[in-house]
């Protein structure tokens, strides 16, 4: 790569010049997948909690009558 470019922007020369972009992309994609899994799990747990609550609310309404 280009020596002048390193001088202008050392971080970027370091980043793309040393082949570390792979690692960063890998980490970013793992974080993305982790976020997705976490959201899916959270959603299904919330759904179950919601159903249980609806059940309880129904019972509470039906009991006095």
């Amino acid at each position: 790569m280009n020596h002048l470019f390193f001088q202008i922007n050392p971080l970027e020369g370091f980043f793309f010049g040393s082949g570390k972009a792979m690692v960063v992309a890998g980490v970013a994609i793992i974080i993305l997948i982790g976020l997705g899994l976490w959201l899916f799990r959270m959603e299904s747990r919330l759904q179950r909690l919601n159903d249980a609550l609806d059940q309880r609310l129904n019972d509470a309404q039906n009991q006095p009558s």
Binding site: L35, L39, Q47, L53, L57
Partner: peptide
């Protein structure tokens, strides 16, 4: 899409909170 999804999850959590308080 990710933003909307996160909003849906947050909304579900908030409405459960509201129901709990109601209970």
């Amino acid at each position: 899409m990710l933003g909307t999804w996160m909003y849906h999850v947050r909304l579900k959590a908030s409405s459960i909170e509201r129901k709990l308080r109601q209970l």
